[in-house]
Amino acid sequence: MSFTVFATAILSAMLINNVILMQFLGICPFLGVSKKSSSAVGMSAAVLFVMVIASAVTYTIYDLVLYPFDIPYISTIAFILVIASLVQFVEMVIKKFSKPLYKSLGIYLPLITTNCAILGVSEGNITGIWTETTPYWEGLFTAVSVSVGTGLGFGLIIFAFSSIREKLDGSNVPAAWKGVPISLVVAGIMSLAFLGLAGII
């Protein structure tokens, strides 16, 4: 556990192995909630918030329950249920105790239940980080670091994409390309640009 591990995990998950442009997870909010920058920022904050908590909880459940009882094959369904419960719980707590936070994140939280990026990170932590010999706290620290990086990467891309889409709304795009087609072309170019970052670390 060190700053180097933390920084490497964050940079790698954020830029090189980006959840949207490289793993193609979370495409639904990427296209659906990227019409306005303000919505994109709210969604990114909510995703980061839930992703970090979900990664810690799912890693713990796998390490302490699923593996010891020899039932890792139910990890996907267990993680879906854990994430769905977690979103409900987080929404309830925010509703009750932090009205300003609910005002900024509240409407995005239910959408996160169906965000496959959260499930993808949780599953990725198990396949990529968890091993029988890895000490629990070390694995948990790396899993949380990766989820922070993934959440930040998600935010970076969705914010950049929403800014470009706002510009595109006012530009002279051929009628047949307006809306989703030109957005997908932009997403493709962004993905190619991020390919150039491969090999940095």
Partner: peptide, 20 residues
């Protein structure tokens, strides 16, 4: 064991959903 684990997770979801 898996039935119990999934059952408890479903119950947890229903409880958190109702509370929310």
């Amino acid at each position: 064991v898996p039935v119990l684990v999934i059952g408890s997770l479903v119950t947890m979801y229903i409880v958190t959903y109702m509370l929310n």
